[in-house]
């Protein structure tokens, strides 16, 4: 498995909890053909590849540390590719939710804040 393919699989798993299908991987590889990460982004990407648990923390940390970073752009492109795929569309379209769903939203908000706090530290250490 080459590095972009494994990156696509890891990013898809991080974003939606599923493995990417072959079309998604192919689209990701094509989109990344002219991507040129700088030294810091390379370090971050390498760390994410070797420690998949860190992807969420680095993603959250980069929002505040360097929101325009190439590492985060790669996650964003994968987000868009997944959204534009019939296999995963239902994870992005609004769905009818019960009023109790507000607790899920509250939980993900708290989780996002915690991840951001830890992520900022982790990004600073790696970069």
């Amino acid at each position: 498995m080459d590095s972009l393919e494994s990156e696509a699989q890891l990013f898809a798993h991080y974003l939606i909890g599923r493995l990417a299908n072959s079309q998604t991987v192919r689209l990701y590889e094509a989109a990344m053909a002219d991507s040129k990460p700088d030294k810091t982004d390379k370090k971050l990407l390498n760390f994410m590849m070797s420690h998949p648990w860190s992807i969420g923390l680095i993603d959250a940390g980069l929002v505040f540390h360097n929101s325009a970073s190439e590492a985060r752009r790669r996650l964003y492109v994968m987000f868009a590719i997944l959204e534009a795929s019939p296999e995963y569309y239902d994870l992005f379209l609004p769905a009818k939710q019960s009023p109790l769903y507000i607790f899920v939203i509250f939980y993900s908000g708290v989780r996002a804040v915690v991840k951001a706090g830890l992520g900022i530290v982790l990004v600073k250490v790696i970069a």
């Binding site: 993603d59 987000f79 993900s108 951001a116």
Partner: peptide, 20 residues
């Protein structure tokens, strides 16, 4: 994907929030 970056969250939590 066009509005998800408006939320200062990681993409996983931003997707859950923005979908709602």
């Amino acid at each position: 994907f066009r509005i998800v970056t408006q939320v200062p969250f990681n993409f996983v939590d931003a997707r859950i929030l923005m979908r709602y």
